Amino acid sequence: MGPEVAAAVAAKHRGDCVNVAAFCAQQGLSRKSFYKYLARFAASGVSGFYPDSRRPHACPTAVSSVVEDLIVLARKRLEDQGWDAGANSIVYWLLDHPAEWPVTMHGVPSRSTINRVLKRRGLLVLVPRRAPSRHRRRFEAAHPNTRWQMDGFEYTLASGAIVVVLHLVDDCSRMDLACHAARSENSQDVWAAFAGAVQRYGLPAQLLTDNGTAFSGRRRGWTSTLETNANVLGVHHFTSSVGHPQTCGKVERAHQTCLKWLRKRPPAQDLAQLQDLLDRYREHYNHRRRHQHLDGLTPAQRYELGPKDQPGPATTAPVYVTRRIVAKNGSIGIEGVLVGVSKKVASQEVLVIHRGRHLAIFIGNNLIREITLTVAKGGYQRIAKASPKS
C-alpha cells in the first residue's frame, strides 16, 4: 500500500470529504479494497495496513512443552554429570532413558528440533563455524587393536599437588584402554599403564605417542624403555611430528572428555582416590556413552565387533598376560612347563607376556628374558632363544 491510499483511508476515517470512487479510479484500486482497509484501520489503526500473519492458528506437529522440558532435563543431567550436552548426546540420552517419555509419545526428536528447542530456551551455545582446512588429512585405523594412541595430561589434587593421568585409547573404536594415575610422566608408570591395557585387551599392532621422554628417545639418540619393550613384543611404535599434536588427536580429544568429567567432582585427595574416579569414568565412557562417530555405538560395542588386529606377523595365537612369583630355584611355571629365569630375582614378581611358545618376561619395566619354549624330558625349559637383560 502506497502513502496516498493510507492518507486517504485515514482522512475518510477522520470524517473528511473523500470522493472514494474518483480516488480509487485514479489509483487503480477497487472500492471494495478501499473499504476493507478503512475497516481494518478503524479496528487496528496503522497496523491494519499490514497483511495479517499466515501462520496457522494450530500446528499438530509442534513440539509440546512436555517434550521441551524433557530435552532441557536431558541437557541438565548430562552437564551435571560432566558429559557433552550437545544435540547428539541428548538424542542418545533420550534413547537410553525410555522411562522418561510419556506413554503416548513415540520416537525421539531430531537433532535440528533439539537445537531449536535449546535456542528458544536460551540454552544453545553458538560456536563460530571454522573454515574447512584443505590440508587436513583424517586417518583412522580400520580394526580394533590396529593402532593405540597414548599420552598424558596433568591433574591437580586437593592438596594442590600436580600429578599425571596416562591415557591410552584405541584408534578405531575410541575404547578407553587405560587411565593410569601416576606421580609424573615417567617410564615406569608409562610401561605399567601399557602393560595393564595389554593384560585386558591383548597386544596392538601399532602404538602412537608423542615425543615425551617417557615415551620415546629416538629423536634424542637413545631408546626408551617403552620402545625397547614394544620392539620385543612385535608392536610397531612410532611418534608424531615435533610440535604437531594433531597426529595424536584422538587421545587429545579423549583428554578433554575425561577432564570435563573430573571437574564436575570434588578433587581427589591422593592417587588412589584419583584412580578410583578414573575407573568409574572408564566404565561409563566405554559401556554407556554412545558416540556419533560410531553411529550411536558405545566404544565397547565397536571394539567387540572386531576383527581385532595383532602385532608382528599374521598369527591366530592369542596373547596372554600373567604374573608369576619366581621360585627359589629361579624358575616360574608357564603352561605346565618350568621356565628358568634367574636365581638373582628369586621371590620377585614378574610379568609374562606370551603368545604361542614365545615369552617376554619383565620385572617392572625391565625386560629380563625373551624365550621361545622347547619342552625337554622332565618338563623343564631348555632355552632355544633367550635374551637376558641387565
Rank of each mutant, 00 (worst) to 15 (best):
N329L: 01
R55C: 08
Q301S: 13
P3R: 13
L70V: 08
V165E: 06
D309E: 13
H135R: 10
N211H: 06
P313W: 01
G249S: 02
I363N: 07
C172R: 09
V345H: 07
T315M: 06
E68F: 03
A22D: 10
T156G: 10
V375H: 11
A346I: 01
E79I: 09
L274W: 09
W222N: 12
G2M: 03
P204F: 07
F194H: 09
A25Q: 15
E335Y: 03
G212Y: 06
D96C: 02
A272I: 04
T372I: 01
K260H: 01
L70G: 05
Q310P: 08
P132C: 02
A43Y: 04
A384W: 12
V375N: 12
V352F: 00
D52L: 06
N145Y: 11
A8Q: 03
A300H: 05
Q273S: 04
E185G: 10
G221V: 07
R77A: 02
C172G: 04
T374P: 04
H57W: 08
F238S: 08
V46I: 08
L294I: 04
D279Q: 15
H244P: 10
R323L: 07
R357D: 05
V321W: 07
E304K: 11
R31G: 15
A360P: 00
G28V: 06
A99Y: 05
L305N: 09
E185D: 13
A300R: 02
R220M: 03
N286Y: 03
S216R: 04
R174G: 01
T156V: 14
S342R: 05
